[in-house]
């Protein structure tokens, strides 16, 4: 792996921003706002996971929320049963990664085309949504954790310090963990793209046949990237479960569609773009929710249409292009 100066600077900048946010925001934001910010960050991580596999691997996963929800549910069920989140977290990372790998195996080794891949992944999350909604009775209890049907698992335990279940993290600390997780995942994604595996994955997106004729197993590379996306989405699910609680909504069509919009609005083919798109749209829809005159969903729809027409490449690539043009104009 060779890391060029630009990539190193981007990683350092992202980690500094994450560090500053983790240090400053808990000091100035009210508790409710901070919990909301943690939700935004967890959603940002979900957007990053899709931005990685779609923007760089060309894998249109319409159901990234499946891994998000599986991560959240696994964490909640394991944490309740273990009475400690120390082992619940790795388990909640392992399960969505394994599910993504299994689903990816069926799709990529089955040579499913892109359109059907979108349909299959969307169907997967909708099946899970339906299933999670139908788990209301006492018979749907795993160990001591009732799945709760439509209501989900309201008593999702917050993270505790490793091997110390009595010492639970305060919302401010959960925010810090979430921000650092997002920063680290961004850095890891950047580094992955600089490895040979990452470069081949991008080459596959660009021209699958040529990559294969050069001797690369396209299916294996796609599978690897898809599983990494599942891992990150699962981590986002754990963080989300810590500031809200797990419920079937995590698998819903509404969430599945929103992630696509965040990535498209922020800029496909970038890693920061989807996170920015997510934060902006979430902030805007939250604000719109406080206004009685505007339906937030309607606003989201209009915003998406505007973005497709005005900034088809997404906010970040458009802003970068404009900035570069201005800089060139300023040159002698």
């Amino acid at each position: 792996m060779t890391v060029n100066v630009r990539t190193a600077l981007q990683i350092v900048a992202a980690l500094i921003v994450a560090g500053l946010a983790a240090w400053l925001l808990p000091q100035y934001l009210e508790l409710f706002t901070l919990i909301n910010a943690t939700v935004f960050v967890s959603m940002g991580l979900l957007a990053l996971s899709l931005g990685l596999i779609w923007g760089f691997g060309g894998i249109l996963c319409f159901g990234q929320t499946a891994f998000f929800g599986i991560g959240g549910y696994t964490y909640a069920v394991a944490a309740i049963n273990f009475g400690d989140t120390t082992w619940a977290v790795p388990l909640a990372l392992l399960v969505p990664t394994a599910v993504a790998a299994a689903l990816g195996y069926l799709m990529f080794f089955g040579r499913i085309s892109d359109v059907y891949m979108g349909v299959i992944t969307l169907t997967t999350t909708l099946i899970l949504f339906k299933f999670a909604n139908s788990t209301a009775g006492d018979q749907w209890t795993i160990g001591t954790a009732p799945l709760g049907g439509f209501n989900g698992i309201p008593g999702t335990p917050p993270l505790n310090f490793p091997l110390d279940p009595s010492n639970q993290l305060a919302p401010e600390q959960v925010f810090v963990v979430a921000v650092l997780a997002l920063g680290i995942c961004y850095a890891v994604a950047k580094l992955i793209l600089r490895t040979r595996f990452g470069r081949v994955a991008v080459a596959i997106k660009e021209n699958e046949l040529r990559a294969e004729l050069l001797g690369y197993d396209v299916r294996l590379h796609k599978l690897g990237l898809f599983a990494i996306g599942g891992f990150m989405a699962g981590l986002a699910g754990i963080l989300f479960a810590n500031c809200v609680f797990v419920s079937p909504t995590m698998f819903s069509l509404s969430y599945a569609g929103q992630v696509i919009i965040w990535v498209l609005v922020g800029g496909i083919g970038t890693l920061v773009g989807p996170v920015i798109g997510c934060m902006l749209i979430q902030a805007l829809t939250t604000y719109a929710g406080t206004l009685s005159a505007i339906d937030p969903n309607l606003l989201l729809g209009v915003l998406f249409m505007l973005a497709v027409v005005v900034v088809p490449k997404g906010l970040l690539p458009t802003a970068t292009t404009i900035l570069l043009r201005l800089m060139r104009r300023g040159e002698p």
Binding site: L209, E212, G215, Y216, D217, V218
Partner: peptide, 13 residues
């Protein structure tokens, strides 16, 4: 195709 390429076959479409 990838396995055939790895054997030492260069392919131009």
């Amino acid at each position: 195709p990838f396995a055939i390429a790895r054997l030492g076959v260069g392919i131009k479409t």
